[in-house]
Nucleic acid binder design. Structure first.
Lengths: 198, 198
DNA sequence: TGTACATCAGTGAACGCGCGTTCACTGATGTAC
DNA sequence: TGTACATCAGTGAACGCGCGTTCACTGATGTAC
C-alpha cells in the first residue's frame, strides 16, 4: 500500500496504546497478540513487523502506562500548587480513589502488573526500573523537610503503600470495606509524609 | 485400587499444597492443571474427582497460603513476646526480608497474586476476604494505644505497605536498590504503628 | 472358605480452543527510466 | 507523459504446543452370598 510518512509509527503507537490498556485490564499472560492486534484494527501477522516479540511489546506498553500515571501525578501536583493546596496530598488523592480502583485499564501499571512483571522475562521489564525511579522522584519532591535521600526513601514506602492499598481495595469485596481500605491508605500516606517529629 | 481410609483427603491436600506453591511462583494463568497434577504424582484426569474446576482449586490454594503466612506472623509475634521484643516489629521483619523477596513460592499469596485475583472469577476468591481479614486482625493486635477500629485501619495500611514494598523489591532489579526498598518499607511500617503523637 | 460383584481413585485419549511465531503473499504507492 | 519495477505495511494460512475439561475405562480392594 505504501503508506504516507509516519504511518508505520502511528500504527506502532496504536498497538502499544491498545496493549497498555489491555495488559492493565487482563494481565500479561491473559492478553493474546491476535486479539490485541484486532483491537488495533490489524491482523496478528503484522505484529512482528513492529516488535521482536511479546516481551518487547510488554516492555513498551508498561513504560507508556507508567509515564501516563506519572504525568497524571505531576499535573495533580501542579494544579494543587496553583490553588495553594498540598502537592503530596494531591498525589495521594489522585491515586487512592474509587475511579482508580474501578478502572485498572486506565490506572497505574505497577499496581496491576508488578507481581506478574517480577515473574516475567528480563526483556519485559527493561525500562521499568527507570520509569518507577522517575515516579518515585516526583513523589519525593513533595515530601518536605527531609534530606533528598530520606525523602526518596519515604517516597519508596509511600508508593508501595499506594500500590498495595489499591490492590487490596480491588480484591476485597464490598464497597464499604473497600472504601475503608482507601481511606486507611490515605491517612497512612499523609502520616508518612509529615514533618518528622517524634 | 480401593485405597485406605483418608487416602482421598491426603491426595486432595497434596494437590492443594502443590498448587499453593506453584500459583505463588508462576501466577494463576501460567499454572496448568496437567503439570500441577504431575507435580503431585498424578495424571490430569483425576483432578475433577477432587475439584469442580481450576477456580475452586485456586480458591483453596490461596486460602491455604494465606493461612500459612498468618501462622508465620503469629509465631513471629509469639516468639518476640517471649523474648520481650516488640510484636509489631517482629511482623515487619518477618515480612520484609530478603528470603521472602527471593522465595515468593513460600511467601505471602497476597503479594504474589492480589492483582491477578482481583481479575479472577468470583469463585477463585470466595475465601480470600476472610483470610485477609484475619491476617489484618493479627497485625492490628500488635498496634498499641489506639481504639480497635483505628488499629484495624492502621493494619490495613500496614499490610498494603508490606505487600506493595515487597512487590517493588521483587520487580526492581539490583540487590542494593531492592534492599533499600525493604529498609524504607520497614521504617515506614514502624512509623505507622507508633503511638500517635502529633 | 470360595466366588461374584460393587466401589471408586486414578488413568489417558480425546474435545475444541487460543497461544506465540513464521512465512509466502498482496497490492497501493513512490521512483527510475 | 507513460511504463516497469521496487518497496514494505499488512494479510492470513499454517506450525507445534499447552490449555481446561470430559469420559470410558482400569484394577485392587471390601463386601455379599
Amino acid at each position: 500500500m505504501r503508506y504516507e510518512k509516519g504511518h508505520r509509527d502511528d500504527t506502532r503507537r496504536r498497538i502499544v496504546e491498545a496493549a497498555s490498556r489491555r495488559l492493565r485490564k487482563d494481565g500479561i499472560a491473559s492478553t493474546g497478540i491476535a486479539s490485541l492486534m484486532a483491537e488495533a484494527g490489524l491482523t496478528h501477522g503484522g505484529f512482528y513487523a513492529h516488535f521482536t516479540g511479546k516481551e518487547a511489546l510488554v516492555n513498551d506498553a508498561v513504560c507508556l502506562a507508567l509515564q501516563g500515571t506519572r504525568r497524571a501525578l505531576v499535573s495533580a501536583v501542579k494544579k494543587a500548587h496553583e490553588e495553594g493546596r498540598d502537592g503530596f496530598e494531591a498525589i495521594v488523592d489522585r491515586y487512592l480513589n474509587r475511579a482508580h480502583r474501578d478502572h485498572p485499564e486506565a490506572g497505574c501499571a505497577a499496581a496491576s502488573l508488578a507481581a506478574e512483571l517480577a515473574r516475567a522475562q528480563a526483556g519485559a521489564r527493561e525500562g521499568l526500573a527507570q520509569e518507577v525511579h522517575e515516579t518515585l522522584s516526583v513523589i519525593a519532591a513533595e515530601i518536605r523537610g527531609r534530606s533528598p535521600d530520606a525523602a526518596y526513601a519515604a517516597a519508596c514506602a509511600v508508593f508501595g503503600l499506594l500500590m498495595g492499598t489499591l490492590q487490596l481495595a480491588r480484591v476485597i469485596g464490598g464497597p464499604e470495606t473497600s472504601a475503608a481500605m482507601l481511606a486507611a491508605g490515605r491517612e497512612a500516606a499523609l502520616t508518612l509524609a509529615q514533618p518528622r517529629g517524634e
